[in-house]
Amino acid sequence: MVELRDPLAEPAARQTRLQTVDGIALALEEFGNVPGADIVYAHGFGQTRQAWLSCARATARAGWTSTTYDARGHGQSSWLESGDYSVDQLVDDLRQVCASRSQAPVVVGASMGGLVGIALAGQALDACRALILVDITPRWEAAGVERILAFMRAHPEGFSSLDEAAEVIAGYLPHRAQRKSPERLGSLLIPDADGRLRWHWDPRMLESIAHDGVSHQADLMQAATRIRVPTMLISGSESDVVSESTIAEFLHLVPHARHAVVEQATHMVAGDENTRFAGLVQRFLDELPSD
């Protein structure tokens, strides 16, 4: 267990950039400063590090150094000139972010970030101290993923305003009572040369990563069997990406893993029910063995 900090104190935030071995500059943001108590958050496809803002601040207030980063081709991180993205690149990026910390960190990965976390934890057994997966398993429900991809393929022409984008997102997430604020939308959209707002990720990634991810399923299943660090899967009760069968399969592959369900949450667990999600994360962290 780590030392609890003042829950009312806002943790200091530091923005840095990490150069990868293949020349990509990853945008990182760190909250808190506790040597030897590191967490790295890996976001889902089409998101940015801002998706983790509330949880990263909460764990920093609890005495951890919380690091979020934009995956390559997302947010403020570099885009590949070639447009030739792969899952292996994303795994290598996470490996380098983890290696840049003061010690092997806890990795929290949602969706794409979770798959990358599974691959890393199964390939490099000392790369992370523990693993928290958010609504993702090595085998996923194709219909749920296709629904997400359909949304991401829509509106290639972008949006005329933040209000228009907010309307589209509200239609995609009808269960959320509150719309995204202009500040939060600003991290997901960038103005193009024609003045329209487009998603803040490289559109060339979509089909290549989607196809590459499917081809990696067998490798991810094997990687899961090699995970030795403390592991927790947090799923949403209303998710269409994981199911009882894929969760049971994962728990068979990783028999020491724990599983918790967040009621009324969809695949976007942290965004749907952040308080309950953050509470589960903190409980898991509190129960980790001391080094």
Rank of each mutant, 00 (worst) to 15 (best):
L125T: 11
L125V: 11
A223V: 00
T48S: 12
A270H: 10
W140D: 15
L28T: 02
A51F: 11
A270D: 08
S100W: 06
N274E: 11
P255H: 05
S161I: 02
S239A: 07
M152K: 15
A9C: 10
R184S: 14
A257L: 12
P230D: 10
A224R: 03
T67N: 07
G186Y: 08
Q222G: 15
D286N: 09
V108D: 01
H259G: 05
W79S: 00
F277T: 05
R196P: 04
R17A: 03
T275Y: 06
L185H: 09
D70I: 08
R258E: 14
D212N: 09
N33R: 07
R184W: 15
A265V: 10
A13R: 04
R179F: 09
D88A: 11
A62I: 07
A37I: 00
F151N: 13
A142N: 12
V281K: 00
Q123K: 11
S208I: 15
R5I: 09
A60V: 00
G114Y: 00
G83Y: 01
S187N: 10
T68F: 05
V242I: 04
W64H: 10
A223W: 02
P174H: 04
M232Q: 11
V91Q: 10
S160E: 12
S161D: 04
Q264A: 14
E141V: 15
H211P: 13
T266N: 05
R276G: 07
Y69D: 00
D202W: 05
H211V: 13
M232G: 10
Q222I: 11
L94P: 02
V145C: 15
R147E: 10
A166Q: 09
E164G: 06
P105A: 03
V241S: 11
T137M: 04
V108A: 04
T275D: 06
I148P: 06
G114V: 01
H216G: 14
R129N: 01
A9P: 10
V145W: 13
I247R: 13
W140N: 13
I136N: 00
C128P: 01
L133K: 06
S290N: 13
V254S: 03
A25P: 15
A71E: 09
L131Y: 03
A223E: 01
Q222L: 14
R198L: 13
D126T: 04
G271L: 06
R61M: 05
R72F: 02
V145Y: 14
S237F: 14
E183S: 14
H259Y: 02
D163H: 09
A27L: 13
S235E: 15
W201I: 05
S237L: 12
R283M: 08
S100H: 07
E249V: 05
V107N: 01
A121V: 02
A42W: 04
T16A: 09
S78V: 10
S208C: 14
F151S: 15
G23E: 11
P191C: 08
V145P: 06
R204T: 04
G186S: 12
A260Q: 13
H216C: 08
V106D: 04
L133D: 03
K180G: 14
D291H: 11
A142I: 09
A260M: 13
F284Y: 10
A124H: 14
G117E: 11
A119F: 04
